[in-house]
Design a protein around this nucleic acid. Structure first.
Length: 931
RNA sequence: GCCGAAGUGGCGGAACAGGCAGACGCGCACGACUCAAAAUCGUGUACCCUCCGGGUAUGUGGGUUCGAUUCCCACCUUCGGCACCA
């Protein structure tokens, strides 16, 4: 009940009041102060899309609270904010609403800035950076010319991903999902051949895999590691009949002797030269087919293998064997060399291809397990195969598989027979009907013994051995399935990495663990290849065929080619007077005069590059621009850099793991090598927030009508309540669906905080126990809140404060109001609340008559004496089950504790008639009696 | 298919060296206040039983241990990423 003297909580009044005062006083300014340790807290900058949504607030509020906590701990904290202001949505809005992108963008920035202020965040707006400002993109362009001059930016014609909706190319990182869609608009991309600019991110692949100097979440490190996709293997040089060198990359140089054919990507430059006259028509037709196919069709894994023989042959450098060269779309021009040696016996894809086209399969790795030395392809072709074996003079033992002759089980005994078999496979004769095989009956070849089998099912010994070796195969499968199943085959052959080499000339018998190195070494010594590491990571495509971005600072001169615009002519300004044509073409290209310029080298007539830079380039260095957003002598003031960098904590969404976070580390490392930045890493610690969903557990979207506007929430509850709720309602790293009931609970709590502190209560109690209890809870809470701020466990900060307030309310009822312990509790409570809900804590701090500002106060220290428990609740277990709880003094000795326990009535009851075996005592916590 | 993360009440979640499972909040039920409602305050709230008391519970099944949400193994489910990468 309010008395006339107690103020009423009115966030609508106090929040703007304090925001204004903090602004006027420059409370949130961060300036270099060598006397203090620095803390650079960075949070990913938003794109100015229109309004701040609840996701922005969820992303920013806990880091803001943590930055405030760090400041109270005595750090000089830099917590800046800015806008990633170039990008497609502005341009789409321009086309749709006939507003200039610049106007649209800056209007949104104005709006969002205001919304940020109502959140009560501690951003130092003097350090705001906007990537679309010429004073910003001048230096984005400068970075480009630096990279260009150091050979890290280059231009090439390549098949690139093109979004037909947004009319621009995309980096590989911006193409998502199974259907290869545009990260922004969801349209499936198509391939185009275009001259584009790239950054050599691949040159840093190895360094990007090294996370030893940074504390980043495992999840992000894994995503990046997979994305970079390091493969160790060897480059092997085959030669063609026409003496061209044909390099392949393989991770399995130990299987070189098993290469029975070669496959090139249809786009491979040697295809035309290799193709024989007879095969030309077929090859051309296939290449046309492939080009017509979309990426999705082509790269679908379940698609049946297609390909054609070129008519050409390549020579295997390890044994001089001629193998046929095929082309197939499962080999990608963009990885490795666009050519592979095919080892169907030990590679699943090659196997499928060989089966389909009747190419030989030659096992060269032994499993060393005494069962399946080698095993080969199908047959509903059993008869033909058997006849072939006989024709080749091979001795074999055969048994039919199944009751109705579904297949043939073949055993070869001894190396001589196997060699003959291999020779047969090498010869070009193959059963004509192999590619008509439908069923999957496998023919097994064993070399460890002779057996005549009546039927496979009868051979219990083999079955038992198989079961022991491959328990997964034996389970729930009939013998037929087991012998026929591809699983079994895969297990035996494709996972034979560490098997001994066989049928490999002088290398036969090489143990699996050293096979790869040994072959690689031999290749290198004989100039036929070398050990090589390959990465899935591609160079970063940075050209965008759009207007609203930083122009690529390049001029094309007929005599000097691509010339970087000199530093003193930067920025290359975007022209404002542009028109949008319905063709979707970049207005820069259509601008009548803008691209006409002179060559910086010779002064002759030249043309500007009309593509703009990927906006991810702007955001790769924004953390540096914050340091000195108006600096004109360089991208940043070195004095500021030396003080603030590197970023201590970086927060943002996980969706940037394979885009921005890779780019910005690349940028930093490349800049370091160009002498611009220092150290190996830009951001030491990274933490990711989860996502807030709508109340229906769906992603918030306007079309679903489940969007919560933070502005409305602030209007109804005040920023302090919204902040506390965002911190409290879920684990920050996970996110959760929004709950309109949940925020009511926090609203009640904030109001209770106000009332508990502001309204008087009964005074004068001398209850020492009550004082002790209050102080203990207070300092225990301080300890846990401090720890939780450090470790980003935000939700338990608020729940801890809730528990403390509950105890304070109890203490107030007990008559502690206005006592020294009460005053201490109120003071520390407000200090702990200050980072979470900065306005109400400032208001109550002032109401208490304390010096302005609460945010400049030091974070309190835990009084360990007060936090100490002086009584413990000893949990008494009997055989691990809780049977009793005993209150005992905290310092009690083990002996006394045991004596007390055994004396308790509850324990006595259980002990009756039982033998006591053992007593386990955990000091201060628990006693377990084993009987 | 490969890589990774996560499974705890009706819900969000807590349990921070292997030691009381379910803190805190939402929701719900009952009560106080009120003519009434809202607000506020109080009490209760995992499940089962024979309700004194006992039993079962942290995705499932095993294991280690005096003792497991926590460690180990296998499996199931969900989510995220990659996907013919040689």
């Amino acid at each position: 009940m309010s008395t006339p003297n107690t103020p009423i909580y009115n966030p609508a009044e106090i929040e703007p009041k304090w925001q204004k005062k903090w602004d006027e006083d420059g409370l949130n300014h961060s300036d270099i102060d060598p006397a203090k340790p620095k803390h650079y807290a960075l949070t990913m900058l938003p794109y100015p899309s229109g309004d701040l949504h609840i996701g922005h607030w969820f992303a920013m509020t806990p880091p803001d609270a943590r930055a405030r906590f760090k400041r109270m701990q005595g750090y000089n904290v830099l917590f800046p904010m800015g806008f990633d202001a170039f990008g497609l949505p502005a341009e789409n809005a321009a086309i749709k609403n006939k507003v200039h992108p610049k106007e649209w963008t800056y209007r949104n920035i104005e709006k969002m800035r205001k919304q940020f202020r109502s959140l009560g965040a501690m951003f130092d707006w003097r350090r705001e950076a906007i990537s679309a400002d010429p004073e910003y993109y001048r230096w984005t362009q400068w970075f480009f010319t630096q990279l260009y001059n150091h050979g890290l930016a280059y231009r090439k014609s390549a098949q690139v991903d093109w979004c037909p909706h947004d009319n621009t190319t995309l980096a590989r990182e911006q193409v998502w999902g199974e259907d290869r869609h545009c990260e922004r608009c969801g349209t499936p991309v198509i391939k185009k051949n275009l001259e584009q600019w790239f950054f050599k991110t691949t040159a840093y692949a190895e360094q990007l895999l090294d996370f030893s100097q940074i504390d980043w979440p495992e999840r992000v490190r894994t995503l990046e590691t997979n994305w970079i996709g390091r493969s160790e293997g060897a480059a092997v040089i085959f030669t063609t009949e026409k003496d061209d060198q044909l390099e392949v990359f393989t991770t399995r140089p130990d299987t070189l002797w098993g290469a029975t054919f070669m496959v090139l990507a249809p786009e491979h430059p040697l295809v035309a030269k290799l193709t024989s006259v007879e095969q030309k028509a077929e090859v051309d037709a296939y290449i046309q087919d492939v080009q017509r196919m979309s990426d999705i069709q082509r790269e679908s894994t379940d698609k049946e293998k297609t390909g054609v023989f070129t008519g050409g042959y390549a020579i295997n450098p390890v044994n001089g064997r001629q193998i046929p060269v095929w082309i197939a779309d499962y080999v990608l021009m963009s990885y490795g060399t666009g050519a592979i040696m095919a080892v169907p016996a030990h590679d699943e894809r090659d196997f499928a291809f060989a089966i389909k086209f009747g190419l030989p399969i030659l096992p060269v790795i032994d499993r060393n397990d005494g069962i399946a030395k080698s095993l080969v392809f199908p047959g509903s072709v059993a008869d033909g195969f058997a006849a072939q074996l006989s024709d080749a003079g091979i001795e074999y033992y055969a048994a039919p598989v199944g009751d109705e002759g579904e297949g043939l089980f073949v055993t070869l005994y001894g190396t001589d027979q196997i060699e003959k078999y291999i020779a047969m496979m090498r010869s070009a004769i193959q059963p004509k009907n192999w590619n008509e095989v439908v069923g999957a009956q496998w023919v097994f070849i064993f070399s460890d013994g002779v057996r005549e089998l009546d039927s496979v099912t009868a051979d219990q010994e083999i079955l038992a051995k198989c079961k022991a070796l491959y328990p997964a195969v034996g389970k729930n499968r009939t013998t037929m399935e087991m012998l026929n199943g591809l699983d079994f085959y895969k297990d035996v052959l494709f996972h034979s990495e560490y098997g001994t080499m066989i049928h490999s000339g002088t290398f036969s018998g090489t143990p699996g663990d050293i096979a790869k190195q040994k072959v690689s070494k031999w290749l290198e010594e004989n100039n036929k290849g070398k050990a090589k590491v390959n990465y899935r990571l591609r160079d970063w495509l940075i050209s965008r065929q759009r207007y609203w971005g930083a122009p690529i600072p390049i001029v094309y001169c007929p005599t000097h080619g691509a010339v970087a615009v000199p530093d003193d002519q930067l920025p290359v300004l975007l022209p404002d007077d542009v028109e949008w044509m319905p063709t979707g073409q970049s207005p820069l290209k259509l601008h009548p005069t803008w691209k006409i310029t002179t060559c910086p080298t010779c002064g002759g007539p030249a043309e500007r590059e009309t593509d703009t830079l990927d906006t991810f380039m702007c955001s790769s260095w924004y953390h540096l621009r914050y340091l000195s957003p108006h600096y004109t002598q360089g991208p940043f003031d070195p004095k500021e850099y030396d003080y603030w960098m590197p970023v201590d904590t970086y927060t943002g969404g996980i969706e940037h793991a394979t885009m921005h976070l890779i780019y910005t580390r690349f940028f930093h490392k490349a800049s370091r090598d160009m002498g611009i930045t220092k150290g190996d890493e830009p951001m030491l610690q990274l933490r990711n927030q989860g996502m807030i969903l709508g109340e229906d557990s769906e992603k918030m979207s306007k079309s679903k009508g489940n969007v919560r506007s933070p502005v409305d929430l602030v209007n109804s509850y005040g920023a302090d309540v919204v902040r506390a709720y965002l911190i409290f309602f879920s684990r920050w790293d996970q996110g959760a669906p929004w709950s309109s009931g949940g925020i009511e609970g926090v609203n009640r709590w904030i109001r209770r905080v106000w009332v508990t502190i502001v309204e008087p209560g009964p005074e004068g109690s001398k209850d020492e126990n009550a004082v002790r209890n209050l102080r203990r809870k207070l300092h225990q809470t301080l300890r846990s809140v401090t720890r939780d701020f450090e470790t980003f466990e935000f939700n338990t900060i608020v729940s801890g404060l809730m528990e403390l307030l509950n105890d304070m309310m109890k203490a107030k009822q007990q008559g502690l109001y206005n006592s020294p312990a009460w005053k201490e509790a109120v003071e520390l409570f407000l200090l702990m609340l200050a980072p979470v809900s900065p306005h109400i804590s400032e208001e109550l701090w002032a109401w208490l008559g304390k010096p302005y500002s609460i945010h400049k106060q030091n974070w309190p220290k835990v009084d360990e004496e007060a936090a100490r428990e002086d009584e413990i609740t000893l949990v008494v277990q009997i055989n691990g089950k809780v049977r009793d709880r005993i209150q005992l003094p905290a310092g009690i000795t083990e002996e006394d504790a045991k004596a007390h326990t055994l004396a308790s009535a509850a324990v006595q009851r259980y002990l009756e008639g039982k033998t006591l075996r053992q007593i386990i005592y955990v000091p201060g916590k628990l006693i377990n009696i084993v009987i």
